[in-house]
Design a binder for these strands. Sequence first.
DNA 1: TTATATTCTTGACCTAAATCAAGGGGAAAC
DNA 2: GTTTCCCCTTGATTTAGGTCAAGAATATAA
Lengths: 266, 266
Amino acid sequence: MQQKTQQSKLRQKKVVDFHVVKVACKECSLHQLCLPRSITGADLEKLDEIIERKRPLKRNEHLFQVGGSFNSIYVVRSGSLKTYSPTVDGQEQVTGFHLPGELLGLDAIGKGKHPCAAKALETTSVCEVPFEHLEGLAQELPTLQHQLLRLMSKEIFDDQELMLLLGKKTAEARLSAFLLSISLRFKQRGFSSTEFYLSMSRNDIANYLGLAVETVSRMFTRFQEDGLIKAERKHIVIKDREMMQKIAGMNDCCEDPVDDQSQLFV
Amino acid sequence: MQQKTQQSKLRQKKVVDFHVVKVACKECSLHQLCLPRSITGADLEKLDEIIERKRPLKRNEHLFQVGGSFNSIYVVRSGSLKTYSPTVDGQEQVTGFHLPGELLGLDAIGKGKHPCAAKALETTSVCEVPFEHLEGLAQELPTLQHQLLRLMSKEIFDDQELMLLLGKKTAEARLSAFLLSISLRFKQRGFSSTEFYLSMSRNDIANYLGLAVETVSRMFTRFQEDGLIKAERKHIVIKDREMMQKIAGMNDCCEDPVDDQSQLFV
DNA sequence: TTATATTCTTGACCTAAATCAAGGGGAAAC
DNA sequence: GTTTCCCCTTGATTTAGGTCAAGAATATAA
């Protein structure tokens, strides 16, 4: 009861709508992660105005489909999604996983159409940021323009890391690097970096890493035997991070300190 | 003589400097490829002002080194470069090839340092675009901001295509896709799409595609035997594009019509 | 020009991971 | 509760492509 009243107060003049629940950015638990520090006050309200919160997606629901027209970028608030595109032979290719605080849709700006589909791996809520508005706002706010460019640059950089993984690394290095990457991303969002829940199936992981499911499964088993991790179904515990980094053949750059400026909205 | 006088006229009040030869954008042969159509007149002059032309690089000279601080993005005017980063085991990983009209350095915006090095594959000239100035200008010119975002998005999209290649395709599909990609890029720049010169070594190609040199060599041989291409050292002729597309397992999207808006500067 | 070093090609062999095949265990549906 | 289906694991076998080795062609240096 008490809580309800508080929430109402916070929502202030906003219409309560059970389908599109609006929660202002400054009330969001991920606020400090999400916005450039320098954006505050009036600017923050401007941002807040253009952002829409969609009703949560259920598992396996799509956020957008391949070829769908691009209007917005999305930020994961809770839950997780995978993006994937169809290949010629009717298979699907998983192109990425998106955890809370991470963006989707940047690859669609160029063509104005989504080159991949996005599907929720669990119950997931996202913020929708209409791109035209965002562009307009970036025109006014240099910090925001800068942040946007940085974010896209980071995406390019990350993709290149993954290319390296796919092109040159063994199955065991790939899985190790994958787990460490997930671990790091959870850590950056303030979650445990040693213990987490993998919302995606082994199949999705294999697909993403360019391996067969069987290979991934075998690697999980081997990592457990070697005492590197504890894996009970989707619940993972990293036990020997040091060793896993060695196996992954990590560049030092992957251990860079968390960059607070790395996110835009949540 | 006549020509010289003309050039002098065109260069107008600019100081002639043999180290940094300045040539205005509107005089550049690649002008129409390079600039968004809507940028003209006074805006074009603003752009022109911030761009620096560096003296040409000789083969094997570096444009920038790994870890070098990021100040500018670069556009290839003629020649070509490869970008590569060092791996843990002291090897190098080729992350891309850059043909005339293409950009380098977008992956460095995020961290402010170059995550890869860029080396000329032949005598190469580039335009240098100081990033701070570009950002400032994009703040004034919405078209430019938009163009910049589009370009970065395209880079993300292209990287994802390559990830797919590296993760799922056979050696023969990789090489076929590579050759078709080069062919398309030459075409977009107004060169022949069926006959071209590969400035990079087999080694670089193999590295880039995540294959052994020997495998690449064998594939070249096989493609010739099958009458798909004619390859005499680095001179390549595409003889059966249709079949190569089949082998590459191309998504239809790769045959998209040329997008004039795809470039920024040259 | 000859000498030396790359870069490329080809062949023989081997290994990492794919494929094929068969069970086992949870979660969702009835 | 029981059934169904999907996801995961494990084992046996195959294969694409890596590695090793050697020679040919071309480029670079002397």
